[in-house]
Nucleic acid binder design. Sequence first.
RNA 1: GGCCCCAUCAUCUAGCGGUUAGGAUAAUGCCCUUUCAAGGCAUGUACGCGGGUUCGAAUCCCGCUGGGGUCACCA
Length: 530
Amino acid sequence: MAEKPARVRIAPSPTGDPHVGTAYMALFNRALADKTGGKFILRIEDTDRTRYVADSEAQIFAALRWLNLVYDEGPDVGGPVGPYRQSERLPMYKEAADSLVKAGKAYRCYCTSERLEALRKIQTAEKTKHQGYDGLCRSLTPEQVAQNEREGKPCVVRLKMPSEGDIVIADKFRGTVSFPASDQQDAVLLKSDGFPTYHLANIVDDHAMGITHVIRAEEWISSLPLHHELYKAFGWEEPVFAHMPLLRNKDKSKISKRKNPTSLLWYRDAGFLPEAMVNFLSMMGFSMSGDREIFTYEEFLTEFDLGKVNLGGPVFNLEKLSWLNGEYVRKLSAEGLARRIYDHVKLLMGRERDFADLPDEELPKDTFLKDFEIKRRRWSRNLAELAPVIMRGYEHERDVFLRIMPLVAERLHTLSEAADYVPMFFVNEFALKPEDFAGKKTTPADAKKALLAMKEVMATIDFAHSGAKEALEDASRKKAEAMGIKIGDFFAPTRVAITGAKVSPPLIESMLVLGPSESMRRIDRAIALL
RNA sequence: GGCCCCAUCAUCUAGCGGUUAGGAUAAUGCCCUUUCAAGGCAUGUACGCGGGUUCGAAUCCCGCUGGGGUCACCA
């Protein structure tokens, strides 16, 4: 793609949690900038005062940084064509709107919202051909306008849209998209509060910031005619438009909070790795040659080409993301994974309340999502609570921490799942009841017998010896056989005694990590309980 | 409903006129196995329908159907 350096941007509005769709668009924009040696810009579109959320902007910054989808220019990093926050560019929009009015390409509209609402009602009821503003104020005489102004009537500025013919606009993916002009309405450019609408600000800024390619979500296609007419009215050159498919819920509707986790904070808190997220998002609408599914951003770049984007709306499948994340976890070195777990635990520390169980009606309906969310909350709560212990383990018993990483890694999909495998090495008090030692076909009494037998076995083993693992296993098998019980039933009570749970890392290796005295201590405690 | 966009397994996708329609996730079965995983092997599952064009269509064209988006002084 030997193209000129592109200047691209994403323009999220700070109205809530940073959205996965924002990351998706950031990725493809960042890629085009990198591919062409251009710049990727972050612009905050905060022109809606009613939906403004104070810390949303900072979270967008943080989320993009987390994903390493960094921007070259933006509100917090500056740049040559700032400010990058629309609320700080208000005079420009006002001036732009005025110039359009002066040139006769836009006009002031004094219609009240009551009239507009009534109009809308009639149009819906009668199913009139033309829906939308009827252009009443377009034909106001200069005298009437002057009169309205003297009276201080609130007004908006509307663009004069053409009413005949087709509006044809180029789209990088679709060739061309065309709309009957008669369906268009004179859209509001400047609101009565003096703030611009998205459309005005967007075009003014894209032009002022030298944006060459607008890669954005498909939901914007329908405002393409307006944007096109705006560029025409200003006499500005239009950027290349490329409308990406929308991320979808399982039912194919536009991805939404109710049906899917959409907050990037959710993914971070759940323990997804940023590089896995980026990889996964890359696969939404794009595929690498040779059936490659696991690849770095750099590898993605080598093959990235807007021409290869798939237009069908991809369903965001958490199951596959979860698998992919596991693959990334397993690619990490012991040191790398340890560090990720440490950072993750630190992130969750003290946040137990964020992860309280949800009432059933607030849980997702989809069984996988529901199940995942329940487990995720449990894991997160455990980690939040045990964070100090786990962190101390990382800081002061690094050798132990590193030794267990291989045991843990192949059991993880997300970092949070470490809650099931890591704490047992650093927590030495388990709240256990005799029933916890019972199996499907075994009683606590059977468990006690097995534990006593395990003690005998352990007494014969030199934990420090390099063959300790095999020795312990062989001896255990022989013992189990001698007792006439299955090896699984022999190990099960010890597993509970050692790890505090029925599901754990491999038992023998865990015992070796803990060492003979701690292992023995845990077994003795269990025996005492039974 | 009007307008617009889209269309290969359940899902993500490969395919760009001639393939036994390939891979991955998920599912199922088997193997491995001290739990849980991970891993290995195997199986089933797709070109929405109807017309063209062509010697030949998943691939090109048209229609239908289906899905989605959008119809604000929100972005």
